[in-house]
C-alpha cells in the first residue's frame, strides 16, 4: 500500500509490507476465533486445525460456534459455506490474471485467496506476471503465518482483548481505501455504491447471504451500464 512504484520495486517486499498493515487490525479477530474455539467445547487443537485446513476466518468462526451450540453438522456446514461463498467471486475475478501464471501457482494460489489477499491483489493485475506472483505470495504467506499464529495464541489469551481503542474498524477502512483505488470510472463507482446499499437493505439475511446477492446485483448493474456505453 506504500505508494510510488519505481521500475525496480521489490514486489515481494512490498506484498509483505502491505499485508502487514492489514494484519494488525485483524489481530483481535484472530484472537476472538481462539476464544470461540474455547467456548465451543471442541478440543482446542481440533478447533484450531480449521485454521490451516480451511484458512477462512469468518467461515471458521461460524462453523465452530454453531457446532459448539449443538447445531447439526449439516446446518453448521451449510451456514459456513454460505459465509465463505464470496470467495467464488474472488476466484472469478482472478481467473484472467491467473492464466498468465504457471500451473503450480494456479493450484497453490487459491488456498491463500482470503479477503485481504484479494483486496490487495485485485488492483495489481496489470503488473508483469512474475511481479504479481511475488506480490501475491508474499502477501498470502504473511497473512497465513499471522492467522496460524494468532488463532493459536487466541486459544490461550482469548479474554485479554484490548477494549480501550477499537482497532478492528481499521479493516473496513483499509478495504474502503483499496476499493476506491480499483474504481476508475463512474460506472464502477455507481456499482460500488449500489452494492453497499443492497447489502445494507439485506442486513437481516442470515449468514452474510445479503453480501452475495448484493455483489451479484452490483455485477449485473455493471454489465447493464457497459451495454449502455455502446
Amino acid at each position: 500500500m506504500s505508494n510510488p512504484a519505481s521500475p525496480n520495486t521489490n514486489y515481494g517486499r512490498r506484498g509483505f509490507l502491505d499485508a502487514l498493515v492489514l494484519v494488525i487490525p485483524a489481530i483481535p479477530f484472530a484472537l476472538v476465533f481462539g476464544l470461540a474455539v474455547r467456548e465451543s467445547g471442541i478440543a482446542i487443537w481440533l478447533g484450531w486445525s480449521s485454521s490451516p485446513i480451511m484458512f477462512s476466518g469468518a467461515a471458521q468462526i461460524t462453523l465452530i460456534t454453531l457446532l459448539g451450540e449443538g447445531a447439526s453438522v449439516a446446518a453448521a456446514a451449510t451456514a459456513a459455506l454460505v459465509v465463505g461463498a464470496r470467495h467464488l467471486f474472488y476466484s472469478f475475478s482472478m481467473a484472467p490474471v491467473m492464466q498468465r501464471q504457471p500451473p503450480w501457482f494456479r493450484w497453490f494460489a487459491p488456498y491463500m485467496l482470503v479477503d485481504q489477499v484479494f483486496a490487495l491483489c485485485v488492483g495489481k493485475q496489470d503488473l508483469p506476471a512474475a511481479d504479481f506472483r511475488r506480490y501475491y505470495l508474499a502477501a498470502g504467506m504473511t497473512f497465513w503465518l499471522f492467522w496460524m499464529t494468532f488463532t493459536a495464541l487466541g486459544l490461550f489469551v482469548g479474554p485479554v482483548l484490548p477494549t480501550g481503542l477499537d482497532i478492528t474498524f481499521a479493516t473496513p477502512v483499509l478495504f474502503m481505501g483499496l476499493l476506491v483505488t480499483t474504481i476508475d470510472s463512474w460506472q464502477k463507482a455507481l456499482v460500488a455504491v449500489f452494492a453497499m446499499l443492497v447489502t445494507f437493505l439485506l442486513a437481516e439475511m442470515p449468514s452474510r447471504s445479503g453480501l452475495l446477492i448484493a455483489a451479484l446485483a452490483g455485477l449485473i448493474l455493471g454489465l447493464l451500464l457497459e451495454r449502455f456505453r455502446r
Binding site: R86, P172, F175, L221
Partner: peptide, 26 residues
C-alpha cells in the same frame, strides 16, 4: 473481461458494508 472488472468493486463494497453490520443483523 469488462464484466470481470466489476467483480472487485461490487464484492468489496458489499464486504465493507457487511463488516459494518453486526453479525446478527439489525
Amino acid at each position: 473481461l469488462k464484466a470481470l472488472e466489476y467483480v472487485g468493486p461490487a464484492v468489496m463494497a458489499a464486504l465493507v458494508m457487511t463488516m459494518l453490520l453486526s453479525p446478527e443483523g439489525g
